[in-house]
Write a protein that binds this DNA or RNA. Sequence first.
RNA 1: GGGCCGGUAGCUCAGUUAGGGAGAGCGUCCGGCUUUUAACCGGACGGUCGGGGGUUCGAAUCCCUCCCGGCCCGCCA
Length: 598
Amino acid sequence: MTGDPADDDSASESSADDDSASADSPHILSEQADSGGGLSGDDGEFHAFWADVVADEIEARDPDEPIVIKGGVSPSGVAHVGNVNEVMRGYFVAEVLRERGHEVRQLFTSDDKDPLRKLPRKLANADGEIVGLGDVDAGALGRNLGKPYTAIPDPFGERESYAAHFAALLSADADRLGVPVEMVSNTALYADGRFDDAVRTALSDLETLRGTLGAYQDKVDDEYVPFNPVCAACGKVTETVTAVDLEAETVEYVCTDLEVGDDVIEGCGHEGTATFREGKLPWRLEWPAQWDVLDVDFEPFGKDHAEGSWPSGVDLARTVFGIEPPVPMVYEWFTLGGEALSSSAGNVVTVPELLEVLEPEVVRYFFALHPKKARDLDLERIDLLVDRFDRFERAYFGEVDDEELTRFAERAYPFVMGWGGESPDGRSGDGRALSDRPADADPADRVRFPYTFAAVLGMVEDEDLREQLARDEGHVDDDTPEWAVREALARVERARTWAERTDNEYNYRLQTELPAVDLDDDAAAALDALADFVAAGHDGEAIQAEMYETARDHGVEVADFFEAGYRLFFDQPQGPRLGEFLGELEREFVVARLRREA
RNA sequence: GGGCCGGUAGCUCAGUUAGGGAGAGCGUCCGGCUUUUAACCGGACGGUCGGGGGUUCGAAUCCCUCCCGGCCCGCCA
């Protein structure tokens, strides 16, 4: 496609790397356009899927196998969809690398040696349901402020610690989304001695460390010691180290007060000695120490880290730990219903809740979109997201006339579906199957009911009737494989749940009991006449037409007549196209209901 | 105040790699499905590409500047 006289290599050839500070910018997905920068990979090949751009960056480092991709969270009250960013963004990069023939481990660190600093207002139970503090053993938390999460009992009384409870939630969420992650406990890394070298390194040249870290944090003075022992007397994480013994690998400390915002967590005054395994590094050092100890090659993180701990982490990695930091990637935060995610304000949704209204592949699709765009996840209009996914899917199967979308879909869709970048038969990745399709299923045969149509089908409870309605509408035919019908119908339950949760215009339900309806004589007569017509045996289309006739014949406004019908069947003033809908129901039921008999 | 990232139709978003036609879906409006009743189909309306300036034959795209929003620049993570 080249041969264009405007082609000009000189820019890329001649621009000697004038590596400015931007070389360590974590915004690698924003800088592809930088002139002459080698940021989009050696060959400069264009990629429709951002994960390929990141993978290029990683490969350019020529990393040892297995390539390590890490995410991480601090245990908080609720594991919510915001945390899915950490899981899914790393996952897509991992899968792309696996497809390129690399061995990849995806790790997820839980910063569980951090102290509990304040009480969470909301918690998620083992099923991912959000509960308030009043529903749990809040005292188990309140009495343990200042202690590591791993030293605090599980407020639900199920796991060995609060940290274990939280880690189990995240692990379960990753599982639900078909992403294989290895959970790594920071506490365990200390306890196993795997952090020993990192701690010794950090404490061995305090002058250099203070010089480096001091450029980023004002609190670092010539007394600063980057280690927080856990008090042997009270169990809280303390800050005041008075002496370091590198030979013995211990520190002397005093258990002083810990300031947390405006509050103070009181120290007990104990003076003691702690080993390197009986404390922790502060976050600014712990992060690069993790890179070192775990050999991290790539790590995505939220934009809050981009200008704070990332630059200092890069600096510390080089000057203190003598390593190169991993390839970074900043992702934008997304909003929920236009508002920031906030567990305390109740504006959160958990993964299990989300999966009640969305197929896992739709959730995965949301996170396959470009990470640098701030997006809104609107549960009220989740149908829009599903429509977008369906179109994306059709593009993959060559059914959409949109070159750009098709190019993205051809690359990203297999990863979204967990096929590992290949056809279902030749899947190469570690992704887990999202569905239980038979081995010989042709994915092109899949059926997706439009989400709002699925919501309409959700108005009836009977699954066979749902399928019949879908057949009548042409979404299913005799050639549709059984597995495709099953999958398509599964969306109906989700759309139904959505309609109920949001109580929107699809939240109608065929009434099994006769609703109380006020009717005048004309309307009653018209309904009886319609009942006779239905009893005589006519299809939905005929019933629909007859409704207009009947209304006129009995001097009833058409609108009023339809409303009476909706009242009878849905106990609502409106609903789906009524005549055709009634044509699908059991005739005797319809007749009896029209006669107000049952 | 400084730094970083973002700003494309009412809404949700493609398009910026490599300058050349401003796009999709949804919504709205109109029409069709034998005669208003939310599933289906067709059409139309709809945008100063945040504003301004510059480079260019040509800018959503490159450069400068300003505006708006988010994040960071205390502690913590």
